[in-house]
Design a protein around this nucleic acid. Structure first.
Length: 482
RNA sequence: GGCCUAUUGGAGAAGCGGUUUAACUCACAUGCCUUUCACGCAUGCACACACGGGUUCGAAUCCCGUAUAGGUCACCA
């Protein structure tokens, strides 16, 4: 049987990384087995529908290189792929179940349903309408009374199924509620539409979050009632924000688009989330999409949930940035330069060369270059350096010694700067590293810089460099007095 | 509250009854390299098998219980 997997998001907001991971795994598994990856939009909840959400899903899949074989835009033999466009299909199947006794009409209103709550506030439907007579049902139907169709669950025994990740799961049937299949607005619930569509679309492997683990028996009962073969189940562990909180869009920081805005590249995001909940056989950690398709395995999937550690994703992103060719890096980095304080002031390309290996996410660029556009009094403790035996006094004398030498440079370029610095070191009988370090701090006013003192001096230019050193000397002197 | 599931160092994790004195990666620390930052390289850190019982010659690995955490119990998906 051909492997067919699907990603079935509801267009209720933005795609968060948990959902994206589900899509990824489904895609990887399908492609690995030369199967099809289907996109189905589950929009049966009219109230939660968000305009533009489908476009977001598409743009995310596109930028992550998850290619849809069949879907709303691609078409396919089992369409339509949007559930609201399949409305009639569900009712037909529901009625079939009513005929066979596996489902029944229910006319209970909200008040009655609410009155069923136990001391914990848990409501469980009491099969009240199951025993309505045929005549009564037709009468109420003819009266246009509002109704739903409920699934008639067994009350005794156990339901068992095999999950490819969790193994055999067994749940007492008494736990299963007579869930609603068709809502009073005529649309199916997720619980119903999902089963019907997975069957009609010939989905072979159902991959989804493990929050569906305990409701899977309900779906199986539906398959059984129709006499359909059950699909294979692959339930995925959860991604947590921390030890107790699930990662969700409610916390606002888990959306794919947000990560892109922060300056992550799609490849790194995909690579990182692939590793959250799945581990490869070997020790390789960096994977291209092709390699993921090759190496993905159900046996590497975890049962336990994992915590989303952005620090590690940052590191991975940095790896991708470093190996990227320079032109591409500049194209991606450009907007971040434009957002920084140095907008229009300095040569982005020169800076880009320095900064490519020094940022992990693009949004760090701003913080790393802003010092070029602003120079404010800074804590002189920045000069302190064990390795080069630098303290404030040393710094001051180095700067005083340097200023005239540097002023004497006619052709302000990196070679001449090196020459001059070496001269200063010789004159002071100091290690050149000492001079370099002091100048780097004096020129930047920050401890970590995108490049050494010579590169900075070159970018700043002679006038600004001299200006900054003079200020630095002044500040050091002031501090001495107090 | 019932039911389902999970529990290896700060994080991701390997491990599937016997060279496990428990890999690897991130983080952190230190050193080297680079004429200075970063990159890179090397080394180190770490109170890690939730706890208690069993089974076994032998258990992180199998079984049971407890604890903790998550999920689920909607006319939401």
């Amino acid at each position: 049987m051909k492997v067919r997997t699907r990603f079935a998001p509801s267009p209720t907001g933005f795609l968060h990384v948990g959902g994206l991971r589900t899509a990824l795994y489904a895609y990887l598994f399908a492609k690995q087995n030369n199967g099809d990856f289907i996109l189905r939009i589950e929009d049966t909840d009219l109230e939660r529908y968000v305009e533009g959400a489908v476009e977001v899903i598409y743009s995310t899949l596109k930028s992550t290189n998850i290619n849809v074989d069949e879907g709303p835009n691609e078409g396919g033999a089992y369409g339509p792929y949007i559930q609201t466009k399949r409305k009639d299909i569900y009712l037909k199947y529901a009625l079939e179940l009513v005929d066979s006794g596996a489902a029944y009409y229910c006319f209970c209103d909200k008040n009655r349903l609410d009155s069923l709550a136990d001391s914990n506030g848990i409501k469980r439907y009491d099969k009240h309408c199951l025993h309505l007579s045929k005549e009564e049902i037709s009468k109420r139907l003819a009266n246009n009374e509002s109704y739903v169709i409920r699934q008639n669950m067994p009350t005794t025994g156990f339901s068992e199924f095999d999950d490819l990740v969790y193994g055999t799961v067994s749940i007492p049937n008494s736990e299963l509620e007579d869930q609603v299949l068709i809502k009073s607005d005529g649309l199916p619930t997720y619980n119903f539409a999902n089963v019907i569509d997975d069957y009609l679309m010939k989905i072979s492997h159902v991959m989804r979050g493990n929050e569906y683990l305990s409701s899977t028996p309900k779906y199986n009962l539906l398959y059984d009632a129709f006499g359909w073969e059950r699909p294979q189940y692959i339930h995925l562990s959860q991604i947590m924000k921390d030890a107790t909180r699930k990662l969700s869009k409610r916390y606002g920081d888990a959306n794919f688009d947000d990560f892109i805005k922060k300056g992550y590249v799609p490849e790194a995001i995909i690579n990182f989330i692939a590793l959250l909940g799945w581990s490869p056989k070997g020790e390789q950690e960096k994977f291209s999409m092709g390699e993921l398709i090759e190496d993905f395995s159900i046996s590497g999937l975890h049962k336990s949930s994992s915590i989303f550690d952005e620090t590690k994703m940052k590191w991975l992103n940095g790896e991708y940035l470093k190996e990227m060719d320079f032109e591409k890096f500049m194209r991606l980095a450009w907007p971040y330069f434009e957002e920084s304080k140095i907008k229009g002031l300095y040569d982005y390309h020169k800076l880009g060369k320095l900064i490519q290996s020094r940022v992990e996410i693009l949004s760090e660029i701003k913080d790393k270059v802003d010092f070029l556009a602003q120079y404010n009094k800074f804590d002189s403790a920045l000069y302190e350096n064990k390795k080069f035996k630098i303290d404030e006094n040393v710094a001051k004398s180095v700067l005083i010694e340097s200023i005239n030498e540097l002023k004497g440079i006619n052709d302000w370029n990196e070679d001449n700067l090196h020459l001059s610095i070496n001269k200063i070191a010789e004159k002071m009988e100091a290690k050149s590293g000492q001079i370099y370090t002091v100048l780097r701090i004096a020129l930047s006013g920050v401890s970590i810089t995108p490049g050494g003192s010579v590169e900075l001096a070159d970018i700043l230019g002679k006038k600004e460099s001299i200006n900054r050193i003079e200020k630095a000397i002044k500040w050091l002197s002031e501090e001495k007095q107090c």
